[in-house]
Amino acid sequence: MDSFKGQGGIQMLLTAEQEAQQIVSAARNLKMKRLKQAQEEAESEVVLYRSHLEAEHQKKLSETSGSSGLTVKRLEEETEMKIQNLKETASKVSPEVVGMLINYVTTVRT
C-alpha cells in the first residue's frame, strides 16, 4: 500500500506541475497579448498626435503666409506715403535751399 501511496503522490505532483505549466503559459500568453495591445494603442496615439501636429503646422504656415502678403502690401503703402511726404516737403523747401546755396557761393568774404 505504501507503493500505491507513492505512485499516487507522484501522479499528484505531475498533475500539479502540468497545471502550473498551464497557468504560467496562460499568464505569458495574456502578458504578450496585453503588450501587443499596448503597442498597438501607442502606435495609434503616435499617429494621431503626429497628424495633430502636422495640422497645427499647416495652419501656422497658412496663417503666416497669408499675413505676410498683407504685411508686405501694408509696408509698401506706408513706404509710398512716406516717399510722397518727403517729396512734398522737399519741393516746399527747395527754393529756400537753392537761394541759400547761391548766396553762399556768390558771397565773397574778404
Rank of each mutant, 00 (worst) to 15 (best):
A38R: 06
Q58T: 07
K33L: 07
A90Q: 07
K60E: 04
K60V: 00
V93T: 09
Q84C: 09
H57F: 15
K36D: 13
M81S: 11
S68Y: 05
V93W: 08
T79F: 03
S62E: 09
Q39H: 14
T89I: 12
Q37A: 06
A90S: 10
T89H: 14
L86M: 11
A55C: 06
E43Q: 07
R34M: 05
T79A: 06
V47T: 08
K82R: 12
E76M: 05
K60M: 05
Q58V: 03
A42T: 13
K36L: 15
V93G: 04
E88C: 06
H52R: 10
G69D: 04
V93H: 11
Q84L: 13
S65H: 09
E78V: 01
A90K: 04
S65C: 07
S91Q: 13
E63R: 04
K82G: 00
E45T: 08
K59M: 01
L35R: 03
S51M: 09
Q84V: 03
K82W: 07
T89D: 13
G66T: 03
R50Q: 11
L35N: 14
S51D: 11
I83N: 01
E80C: 00
G66P: 00
G69Y: 00
E63F: 09
L75F: 08
R74G: 00
E77C: 02
H52W: 05
V93C: 07
E56P: 00
S68D: 09
L86Q: 09
A90F: 12
V47D: 06
S68H: 05
S67E: 15
R34Q: 12
K33T: 08
Q58I: 02
E45N: 13
L86W: 09
V72T: 13
E56H: 07
E63V: 10
G66L: 03
I83V: 05
S68W: 04
E54D: 13
L61E: 04
S68A: 08
Q37Y: 10
L48H: 15
Q84F: 12
M81Y: 11
E45Y: 06
N85A: 13
S51E: 12
E41S: 15
K92C: 08
K87G: 01
S62I: 01
G66H: 01
E56T: 10
L53W: 01
R34G: 00
A42S: 15
K33A: 12
K33I: 04
T89S: 13
E56D: 10
L61F: 04
K60G: 01
E77V: 02
V93E: 14
S91H: 11
V47L: 10
S51Q: 14
L53N: 06
E54C: 12
S91E: 14
E78H: 03
M81T: 13
E88L: 10
L70V: 06
T64G: 00
I83H: 03
Y49Q: 15
K33G: 04
